[in-house]
């Protein structure tokens, strides 16, 4: 499923035209993007959260040339799946063990 599919599904689910659905989807995604670009934590209950994770410097290798490169320490957003969604995907229980 891609963004276009989400727009189409949203339009039919809430009974609005494609144009409105597109504005809605773009606004939601842009809101999250803007927050994580500003290193802000985003938490959507039942879905998950985006938090900033720090990575230490390490020596990496360019997979094409095989050349060793030093990778600087960095901070990147990390997505942690929410409890509800996690359980929708995999429920621990007698039926699965």
């Amino acid at each position: 499923m891609n963004k276009m599919d989400i727009i189409n599904k949203l339009a039919s689910d809430i009974n609005v035209n494609q144009k409105i659905a597109k504005i809605a989807v773009d606004t939601i995604i842009d809101s999250i993007k803007r927050a994580i670009t500003k290193d802000e934590r985003v938490e959507i209950r039942g879905f998950g959260s985006f938090t900033l994770r720090e990575y230490k410097a390490y020596r990496g290798r360019n997979p094409k040339s095989g050349e060793t490169v030093n990778v600087e320490p960095k901070k990147l957003p990390y997505f942690k799946v929410g409890k509800e969604l996690k359980e929708m995907i995999w429920k621990e229980g007698p039926e699965n063990s």
Binding site: N2, I6, I28, F47, L85, M88
Partner: peptide
């Protein structure tokens, strides 16, 4: 609020069916 909930529900339902969700420019 209903639209925002619906948006996340669509993604959740898709993932529950083990179908990937690709949002270009996001992830």
């Amino acid at each position: 609020a209903h639209i925002v909930d619906k948006f996340f529900d669509i993604i959740k339902d898709t993932l529950e069916k083990e179908e990937n969700v690709k949002i270009s420019g996001f992830g």
